[in-house]
Amino acid sequence: MSENFNFIGPAQVGQSQPQPQNLSRASTSRDGNSGAVGHDNLLPIANVGRIMKEALPPQAKISKRAKETIQECATEFVGFVTGEASERCRRERRKTINGDDICHAMRSLGLDHYADAMRRYLQRYRESEELAAALNSGSGSGSGGGIQIDVRAELSIFRGHEQQDRN
């Protein structure tokens, strides 16, 4: 059973602003309706932990609570961006969200840095898909070996780390 936890302090009584909620138990959609966010709706913790580990030195340890916190935040972020992209599709009477919709959503949410990186990644991905399709149609055999694209190379925050590592 899902529960909403609204914490109302003495200074908050009578205010019309939404109250904080425990994200691991409940979430509020854009229209204000509360819905259960069970474990099925969170990003997989193993994937979150693996991504976190890649960004840290090999000897670093990550607590279970830290992984759970990032899991909740990442899930909320993905939902936030996807909701904005979905709204654009709804306005344009389309049923499928594509990569361009995600880039547009990031830009409209003020995440220009990420939108630019995503646009570059999307362009390279599309080019690699075209190349793979051309290679597969020419050879007649499905090798299944995809082309790798380093997403981190697209973000300048990671480029700064690479330059420091080389020095």
Rank of each mutant, 00 (worst) to 15 (best):
H39M: 09
C89H: 06
N136H: 13
Q59A: 14
D116S: 12
D150Q: 05
S16G: 00
F7N: 13
D150P: 09
I157S: 09
F77S: 12
T69C: 10
T82E: 07
G110P: 11
R88L: 09
S34V: 12
F158L: 07
T69F: 01
T96L: 07
L131C: 01
K95R: 15
G144N: 00
S86H: 01
T69R: 09
K95Y: 09
E129I: 02
I97A: 04
M106Q: 15
A133S: 10
N167Q: 06
A153W: 03
D116Q: 08
R91F: 08
R94F: 06
S63E: 12
N4F: 00
D101R: 03
L56A: 03
N98C: 09
I62P: 01
L23A: 03
M1E: 01
G146T: 09
D165T: 03
H39R: 10
E92K: 06
G99S: 15
Y121L: 12
D31L: 04
Q59C: 11
F5N: 10
E54D: 15
P18G: 03
R152D: 07
A74M: 06
Q123W: 11
E154Q: 15
D31W: 03
P57R: 10
E162V: 06
R120W: 08
F77W: 13
S139H: 03
T96G: 05
G49M: 12
S63L: 10
K53C: 10
E76P: 04
E127D: 15
G138N: 13
N136I: 04
C103S: 15
K64M: 08
A132I: 13
F5R: 13
P58H: 04
Y121H: 08
I149N: 09
R107H: 11
R166D: 09
D116F: 04
Y114I: 03
G160S: 14
S34I: 15
T82W: 08
R126S: 04
F158H: 11
N47D: 07
L42P: 06
